[in-house]
């Protein structure tokens, strides 16, 4: 049995307070529930959720879909968007959680990464240092989803294969984003292999592709 590790990074600093964070939680639940209906996903997807503001926190360690329950995401209060620290934290998690192939052990599929943030990195120095590390992690695909007021794409463009923008971070847009994420995860499950990067299905119209 090969696992498909899926990492979801969610910014939970003040900018995400209110509807965005609520919608993300509902979106995650809907996504997990629809992935359960996909036999590829049900047998292989392992999901991890990492939230970050000034500090990153893995609120869901890499868990198989079958036994997964999305934990509560606290309403953001803290200021500070340490995107660099969050990425560094995630890379460490990947090192310890993602299994590489050896002759004696069957490796995982290449992991997928989805980052939901406003594109700001208050720790810009660390952020710049961590980008090459992220690139070395061999993600099957990295998608950055920009939410919040006045999102900035310059930072996430540096590591994400595709960047999408949600003008309105309302619940229906976020839901359609997660629907797309689940479709992408399903596709990722099938086509990782010969291609260097997975060809994702087109995002929904509410979500604009930037890159």
């Amino acid at each position: 049995m090969r696992r498909l590790p899926v990492y979801i990074l969610v910014q939970t600093s003040g900018a995400m307070r209110g509807e965005p964070i609520e919608a993300i939680k509902v979106g995650l639940e809907t996504m997990v529930s629809s992935l359960r209906q996909d036999p590829f996903a049900l047998e292989s997807v392992h999901l991890s959720v990492i939230t970050f503001n000034r500090y990153p926190e893995q609120i869901l360690p890499l868990t198989e879909l079958e036994n997964m329950q999305i934990p509560a995401i606290a309403q953001p209060t803290a200021a500070g968007t340490h995107l660099g620290e969050a990425l560094e934290f995630m890379c460490k998690k990947i090192d310890s959680e993602v299994v590489l192939s050896t002759p004696e052990r069957k490796g995982d599929w290449m992991p997928l990464l989805f980052v939901m943030c406003d594109g700001r990195a208050s720790d810009s120095q660390l952020f710049q240092q961590i980008i090459p590390v992220v690139k070395q992690k061999h993600f099957g695909s990295i998608v950055a989803c920009l939410v919040g007021h006045n999102p900035r794409k310059e930072n996430v463009e540096q590591f994400a294969g595709s960047v999408v923008n949600m003008d309105t971070a309302d619940s229906s847009t976020i839901r359609s984003f997660f629907k797309w994420v689940s479709a992408s995860v399903s596709v990722g499950n099938r086509s990782v292999g010969a291609a260097d990067e997975i060809i994702l299905p087109p995002p929904p119209p509410e979500v604009h592709t930037i890159v």
Binding site: R2, L100, S101, K106, G107, D108, W109, M110, H138, V192, G193
Partner: peptide
Amino acid sequence: DGGEFAGQT
């Protein structure tokens, strides 16, 4: 022929 990750060959 295998790679580090599943499905790579």
